[in-house]
Nucleic acid binder design. Structure first.
Lengths: 167, 167
DNA sequence: TTAAACTTTCAATAATTACTGAAAGTTTAA
DNA sequence: TTAAACTTTCAGTAATTATTGAAAGTTTAA
């Protein structure tokens, strides 16, 4: 396997993986492309490399910037905009964890809390609903706390956590 | 908010959440319904409650069984099949974690390993591809190991882990 | 056996989600 | 200013994914 094949394989795998963790294919592919690029890329270069339209590129770059994963970079002497992604995997993982917590987990915790707080009318089904959603609420919240604490350890957090868990 | 409203809210929230962790809406809704039910439910009851077709119900129940989250239960004196879901949230979380590791993480680790093992032809771009995919490989593998070890602690694993991490 | 009760399969279709491309908008250099 | 260089927006369309429903398949009781 030589460069081009390996590159394509990486980008397409990362792309289809994206949908699993809640971002779309193009978004994940753009990030992947930037991740292995040796220099900032322009919209033009991204479109050409991934064979996607200008509109699509623009929209997905914006989303990546909203996530805080990609940033605009100025290149001396160039008028157009260039883009780079966070290159440190641990930092990348931190950003993603925090964003997912904010976007996905927090809203769910809220709903679970609301649902589990309905008044107990004494019926078995109400009791079961309360009991189960309470358990889910507690679990989800614990996991969210865990993620947010882990992530605050910054430097080398994943390895550090692994060590802590199994020493 | 009384029972029916709370129930609907829970089922629809869980349903839309499903797509975030890689299962479809109907599948997540069926699981949610079983999760708060006080007794095993038949296909008929599930269809009616969620207003989905027989075919859809059948296919998604199968998937839930493939995941190991839902099981068939026999009800005395009844010919048709009844279904129940794992009721313990911690056990549920364990099953999901293990399955996701197997279905999603493991294949990615393999691709990353393949890609990062290409021969270094000395060019900057090849060096960058190798370096970055190696870093990603290492991280992904560490996280996978972490998940699998955590999950083997069985009883009360989430709370235990939280304590370990922050004592 | 057979036929009723039930479940599964799958082609057709609906619903959702992603993508394009051209027009509108913005910025910058002259 | 203005016009070239560039980016964003968004209605239309394409691609993907989920759902239906009816036919085929299976099981069980008589």
């Amino acid at each position: 396997m030589e460069y081009q094949e390996a590159k394509d394989k990486f980008i397409s795998t990362w792309g289809s993986l994206g949908s699993l963790w809640g971002i779309n294919k193009a978004m994940a592919q753009i990030q992947a492309l930037l991740f292995i690029s040796t220099k900032p890329l322009s919209m033009e270069e991204i479109m050409e490399d991934l064979k996607i339209s200008r509109g699509n590129t623009s929209m997905n770059l914006r989303q990546l910037m909203d996530w805080g994963i990609v940033t605009k970079t100025l290149v001396a002497g160039e008028r157009k905009e260039f883009f780079t992604t966070e290159k440190d995997v641990q930092e990348l993982a931190r950003i993603i964890a925090v964003e997912r917590s904010r976007r996905e987990i927090k809203p769910v915790v809220k709903v679970l809390n609301d649902v589990s707080s309905i008044t107990d009318d004494g019926t078995a089904k109400t009791k079961e609903l309360i009991k189960q959603t309470k358990a889910l609420h507690e679990l989800t919240e614990t996991m969210d706390v865990m993620i947010n604490k882990l992530v605050n350890q910054k430097q080398n957090w994943i390895t550090k956590s692994l060590l802590k868990l199994f020493k």
